[in-house]
Structures are given as structure tokens and as C-alpha cells.
Simulated assay, not measured.
Amino acid sequence: MEPLFALPPGVEPLLEPIRRLSSPLLPQPTSLEPSPPPMEGVRAVLFDIYGTLFVSASGDIGPADRGGRDETAFRAALEAAGGDAGRLPPGFSGSRRYREVIAAHHAAARARGVEWPEVEILEVWEEVLSAAGMAVDLPRLAVEYECRTNPVWPMPGLLEVVREVVGHGLLVGIVSNAQFYTPLLFPALIGTPLGELGFRPEFCAWSWREGEAKPSPRLFAGPLEALREGWGIHPGEVLYLGNDMLKDILPAHRLGLRPVLFAGDRRSLRLRPEHPHCRHLSADGVITDLRQLIE
């Protein structure tokens, strides 16, 4: 499925469950003090999604194990996607099989030399449902399950900040661990597709497209090349905002960007002081509210 910079026909059915299953989430304050970065010389801003532009109840995208709650979510999502949970094989656990398939895909990718692999979630669900001998609307299943297991909500100030940044003539993009439904969050929850906010496809990179996840530097390659070749913008003129020292700040630092840590939600803030690559790593700035980026 194409990233939604303009809504193509047929997408509306996938927006409905996102709206129906989402409700306001407030960020939980952290103990960090803000030190907003200087914006002088910045010509482009790249954003992370989960835990940065959107509050994430689980803190990140990914197959966290919540036990029986995940299986309840799977069965509800299956029914919503046209399946019949009553026809599942005895003892079949869709949520467990889901995690197993993701782990197997990751292991296979690592065996091919991919250090930070990412799955294509529709392939995962196809394999899960084939084991159950059932065919359903896979995109609907993926959206229904994700919204039940990882609820999200726009971070306070999202629209204001993006519009202000674009209004000042800066280019904006996204580099995020994501799946096909991630771009749908914008039209579903804020009523505006990415393109109408000023995001260009060439300045955005999604992990499911690349088959690799952050902190892989490959995820940044496309947007940085487009900024350099099309606009003469070099890495030192690009600010990158993310909530994870390993997945966001480290690769941005190594690539010569201006990394800024978003520390606005305790659930998603990942300082990782025990990690050898993060122990002495620092960002160029810290913000605890998106609006501090434009103050």
C-alpha cells in the first residue's frame, strides 16, 4: 500500500477503525529539563512518529507481549476483518503466532546480514492466518489489531508545530519505524493527510518499505539524498527529532544531522544509559513539549 500523501480511493474503510478505536491519550511528564536547540541554519526538519509526533500507549511500535489481552485483541480484530474466531483450530493463539512469525522473519533477515530488520506486517498476518486455515481482509485485520494493542493519539502541539515549521520555509519529512497504517494516523486522527501538511514523499522513509528499522542509517539515506540533490541541503542543516537515544539520536548524530531528543512522554522516552553507544551520547537539544521547537 502506498504512503498516504493524498488519500487514494478505498482507504476510508481503514480510517474508520482507527477513529473508532482511538481516544485521547495525554503524555506523561518526564524529569528532564528542556534545552531547546538553536534553529539558526536549520533548513529541514525530519520527525519520528511513535512517541514523538504521536503519543503511544505502549511506548513504541512493535509486538509487545501483553498475554491474554493480546489474544482478546486478535480475536476481536479477526471478527472485524471478516473472520470467525469460533472456527480457529483448538489451542490456536493468533497473538502468539504473530510474535513467532515476526521473530522468525527477523532471524531470517539477520542471517542475510541485516542488523536491524523490519517486517512487512501484511506478510506476517498472511502467514499467521494461513496457519489457522482462514482468509480475511488482511489490511483491516492489521489495523484493528494494532489499534487495540498500541493505541495512539496526536501529541499536543503536533499540528501547530508542523504548520509553523513549514510556514517558516523549512522542509519537513519523516524517518520512522512504521507499517503501512502509520501514515493513516494523520488523516484519521487529525483530519489532514501528510501531503496537506507539507510532507513530501521523497523526504519520508518508513521501515517497512526498507526492510530495515532504526537505528539503521539506511533509513535516513533516501530523505537525505533528496534534500541534498533537490535542494542543496546538507546533513548539518537538518534537524532530526526523536524520543530514543539509540534508535533516533545515535544514527542522526553519526550521519551529521542535528539530533534533538523529544522527552515529553515517560512511556516512550528511551535514554538507554546502559547501552555502550548511548552512555556518553548527547543530543543537540532536548524538548519536553513539541511547541518548544518553535518558541
Score class of each variant (00 low, 15 high):
Leu88Ala: 01
Ser176Asn: 10
Thr192Phe: 08
Val42Gln: 04
Pro215Trp: 09
Ser282Glu: 15
Ala107Met: 11
Glu196Arg: 12
Leu261Val: 06
Gly94Gln: 09
Met245Phe: 14
Glu71Asp: 10
Met134Gln: 14
Glu229Leu: 11
Val128Ala: 01
Arg112Ser: 02
Gly211Thr: 12
Val161Met: 05
Ala6Gly: 10
Pro215Asn: 10
His234Gly: 08
Glu295Ala: 12
Glu40Leu: 07
Gly230Cys: 08
Arg200Lys: 13
Tyr181Ser: 09
Asp284Glu: 15
Thr30Gln: 09
Arg69Val: 07
Met245Tyr: 11
Pro8Glu: 08
Val165Pro: 01
Arg267Lys: 09
Arg19Lys: 06
Ser216Gly: 14
Phe186Ser: 00
Glu225Thr: 14
Gly133Leu: 08
Leu290Pro: 02
Ala142Ile: 06
Gly230Thr: 09
Ala108Met: 13
Ala109Thr: 14
Gly82Pro: 06
Pro201Phe: 08
His105Gln: 14
Gly91Thr: 11
Gly173Pro: 06
Met1Arg: 13
Glu225Ser: 15
Pro154Asp: 00
Trp125Asn: 02
Leu293Trp: 06
Ala205Thr: 02
Met134Gly: 08
Ser31Asp: 15
Ile61Gln: 03
Leu53Phe: 01
Arg218Trp: 14
Glu212Cys: 13
Asp244Asn: 11
Pro217Ser: 04
Glu33Asp: 10
Trp125Gly: 00
Ala205Gly: 10
Ser23Cys: 10
Pro38Asp: 14
Arg270Val: 07
Glu164Asn: 09
Ile249Thr: 10
Gly264Cys: 05
Arg66Asn: 12
Ala44Thr: 10
Gly198Asn: 09
Arg267Met: 02
